[in-house]
């Protein structure tokens, strides 16, 4: 079972639209307030990275069902410059937010599954899933 919808990211306002889409979807899947806040924070971080580093891109929200479990999938994709050293970016303390816990390692913590595909000069696709418990 799959149901998808998406928001193109061009301006900072689109970040809010992506959050709204994610929250509505999370709520209808049945996530509680705390998890809703986690999912929207993850969306914010990913959308903001697209806005800041790739200029434009897309946030797709999917309702997921697998192994008798419902969940939500965020797919953040862009055709921007790509991430040179993904391993480094995933390290705590690397983000420019320095020590505030946000950034990509934060997204990984907020979600249950996290995958980065990035090629320099081609673009970046980040997929993150959170399961309903």
């Amino acid at each position: 079972m799959e149901c998808r919808s998406s928001v193109d990211i061009f301006t900072e306002w689109d970040i809010v639209a992506a959050r709204q889409l994610g929250r509505n979807e999370a709520k209808s899947i049945g996530f509680g307030t705390v998890d809703q806040a986690r999912i929207t924070t993850a969306i914010s971080e990913l959308a903001r990275n697209i806005y800041l580093y790739a200029g434009k891109g897309n946030i797709k929200i999917e309702r997921t069902y697998d192994n008798n479990q419902y969940g939500i999938t965020i797919i953040a994709s862009d055709e921007g410059p790509g991430i040179a050293d993904v391993r480094k970016v995933m390290n705590d303390g690397y983000s420019t937010s320095g020590g505030l816990g946000a950034g990509m390692p934060g997204v990984r913590r907020l979600m249950d599954e996290f995958n980065v595909q990035s090629e320099q000069g081609v673009g970046t696709t980040i997929t993150a899933v959170k399961w309903l418990r």
């Binding site: 806040a37 505030l100 913590r109």
Partner: peptide
């Protein structure tokens, strides 16, 4: 709750460091 999300992340980052 929305306000606290980043506090939670900062705490986890702190623990991992």
């Amino acid at each position: 709750i929305e306000m606290m999300i980043h506090y939670g992340l900062a705490l986890q980052e702190h623990q991992s460091l």
